[in-house]
Amino acid sequence: MSGRDVVLGRVRRALADVPRDESPDDVPVARDYATTHSPADAVETLAENLADYRALVHRADAAALPGLIARLLAERGSRSVVTPPGLPPEWLSGTPEDVRRVADAADATPHDLDAVDSVVTGCALAIAETGTIVLDGGPDQGRRRITLVPDHHICVVRVPDQVVDSVPRALPLLVPDRPLTWISGPSATSDIELDRVEGVHGPRTLEVVLVRA
């Protein structure tokens, strides 16, 4: 007998107490919890919660965005930046040409990416109540590894359009068969005597730019 038959057979015998005509939907699940906790101002709540988990939050309007990104890269001393294929070109239009642009290429190795200082991306959406940005590999976000290996991530969120209140509001907007990365502040560990240390693996610095259209 295959492992599959053994396990499924055991499951069925174990469930002998479940009436044969019971269907999964016969087991009630009350969904009377809140779909949003209604933050008064979702964008403000997002900013607060991001900052609470040590993301650096900036604000700009569309015109000021290229200048802001250029400044953030310069302050960090970045000499190179990975760009996903669909990044709006104007976002980096203020950044000097001597900051090397590195394409998100299929044949780039993790070692190649490790030599790059920063990455700039957009996002799929952001969740106010939890201070989360979600990436779904869209054209302005690229492969998962480009937001993982470089040590500095600048993520642009269009507000208020891309901001939802809550997790229950976010899930229906996301497509499950895309690879999704939910990011709530830079990585952290409390493994040593529960002292929180921000920045273990992944980008140790996360900068989120809230852009008003």
Partner: peptide, 24 residues
């Protein structure tokens, strides 16, 4: 996350479905 690390959300959550051409 709230029960475990007492956070509103943990820093990273990864979701994947099978394999994705060119990513991962």
């Amino acid at each position: 996350p709230r029960s475990s690390t007492a956070e509103r959300m943990n820093p990273y959550t990864s979701m994947w479905t099978g394999t994705t051409e060119g990513d991962g």
